[in-house]
Design a protein around this nucleic acid. Structure first.
Lengths: 148, 148
DNA sequence: CACGCTTGTATAAGTCGGTGATATAAGTTC
DNA sequence: GAACTTATATCACCGACTTATACAAGCGTG
């Protein structure tokens, strides 16, 4: 070990490693008729409960009209529902339906299965290393989400 | 430690951890007018050298016409070039240009910088854990790419 | 060597998911 | 209550895919 770890080099290593992993993960998930944004929005609704439309588009990185359209599509497919705020006649609240939750769950399971298939072919010590780094990566993911 | 590690539980943990990380990474990268597929194709051309068009679309997970169109767009923007195979009059070879390489490099650096900004806010032991898991994650990424 | 089959690209038409500009309606402020 | 702000919707457009199909070059076999 060096007396002071070289952050710059480490960061570059991590970035290029994540790049490879990211590409793999991207290919792994079947679309099933849901865009990345649609799936992410559904997960958010499942995780954080009903949200105002106006609080939804910025974290998903799309514009307001895009979110209006996305919610319309989700509603048409029965995965989410529009509601109204009694206190403010302008706002539309978006709620995930049971069918929506089922889709989120099915996708999550499918993704996990596909990943597991590959993980099983990895040496045990690789799995252990990934497992050990997991809490750190989750914290990193949250940190990115906060400071988006 | 358990006598036999519970693979199923570990896999699920890893899948959900990766999900959070993936969402974060997805938001991190600015689009800069390149689709995910376009960026990935450029990286592939930079990494593996000139490729036949027919060898390009399957690994990127799109159809052949989509790749034809993508190459046309890349060519129009000066990031790639079409060429021909003297031995086979049907094939089109695709080569990345210097401008294309520059774009790949700039995106990589931008991504690394944005990531570094967050990594710096992570506790040192988290960074260390991620660094330690990196080779494993790269192997996993490659494994997914192979068995796509 | 001519015929049909296969392989590699391209084109056409349609769809989906996004954008910016703008409209509309509800709330807020003074 | 007029002007401003906020929340959503609509419009026209574009980019990036899809399937179906065309076309041209190579290949195999009688």
């Amino acid at each position: 070990m060096h007396p002071t770890t070289d952050l710059r080099t480490d960061d570059a290593l991590i970035a290029s490693g994540f790049e490879r992993l990211y590409e793999g993960l991207r290919r792994l998930t079947p679309r099933e008729g849901l865009s990345l944004t649609a799936a992410s929005t559904l997960r958010r609704l499942a995780r954080s409960g009903p949200q105002r439309l106006c609080d939804l588009y910025a974290p998903e990185g799309i514009t307001q009209p895009a979110m209006t359209q996305l919610v319309t599509r989700l509603e048409r497919e029965g995965l989410a529902q529009r509601g109204s705020d009694p206190a403010d006649g302008r706002v539309v609240t978006v709620t995930i339906t049971e069918a929506g939750r089922a889709v989120v769950e099915r996708r999550r399971r499918g993704n996990a299965d596909a990943l597991a298939e590959r993980l099983d072919r990895l040496p045990a010590e690789d799995r252990a290393a990934i497992l050990a780094a997991l809490p750190a990566m989750e914290r990193l993911g949250d940190l990115i989400a906060e400071t988006s």
